[in-house]
Amino acid sequence: MRKIIIDTDPGTDDAIAIIAASKQNDFDILGITTVAGNKGIDITTSNALKLIQLCTLKCKVYQGAEKSLQDQSHLMGDGDDSHGSDGLGGIVKLDYNLKDLSDKHAVDFILETVKANPNEVELLVIGPVTNIALAIKKDFETMKKVKAIYSMGGGIHSGNMNPVCEFNYWFDGLSTKLMFDLGEFVDIHMVGLNVTKPSYFSANDFWFIRLEGGKLGRVIFDIQSAVMNTSGLKEEGIIGNIIHDLLTVMYMMDHSILKTIRTKVHVSTKEYIGQTIADISGNSLEKENAFVAIEVDIKKYKDSFIKLVFGEDVELLYQNHVKS
């Protein structure tokens, strides 16, 4: 079993990623740590609690950073509803149980768990990376013993906050930089917008999931349908939605979904905060600190998600009848 901590700010795409992670047999999810990002920390934490119930996960939620090291939240529009009013699309009503919330801080949980399982713990980081940076600041040596970090963020020549910056990294540029500094000691896999954008799920895909996916399929449809309009059409000009975090977790399960290149990622902390700059030509002479995703097998990605969550029969239907 792979030992995994999910560091997240749910978030409609985080939600789908967590559902997928919960279905993977060899994932032992040790805990979910929360961070402010898509929504404030209270909302992301209660959403994490809702997902624990929805996915019947045995682990607990550990609340983390309320504020990023390089706070930009004041630049976010007040009316930002790209994840719906409640961060999960605003349609689905999900229950949560406060018993699932630990009183331990996310940073302490991460450090203690890594200490207890040196070189075994993998971090799936699908929100701003503030918690990771705080942990590094607190105990760099322990953090060197993380087995790997899978981080959704950044991009090569791609952005969604401005032409070059992606939200998670933009939200906390300083933390992002700190995380990549760890990349000399720990394998960091960066899944950025250059691969997540082309691998969106169309409305046809979501309808398929709704029609064949039973109760969970309906939940996924409802979580995504509200944001199709705001982020899909208005921001990306697509009929559907990009589930950034899902690609990250599917890649974590099967590396053949993304082609990566080992290179050096620079993170800007000035002007274009959170911009990732990397030479992906393969000729870089700099000291490498990350595996950067450069190509995606879209069909394999979507097929394997359907198979993982809904089973082989449904995947077959999907392959035979659905044109995205």
Binding site: A203, N204, S225, M228, N229, L233, I239, G240, K323
Partner: peptide, 12 residues
């Protein structure tokens, strides 16, 4: 008329 079309109609 695909579900892409219908979702588009709903949005716009």
């Amino acid at each position: 008329v695909t579900n892409n079309d219908l979702e588009f109609m709903k949005m716009t």
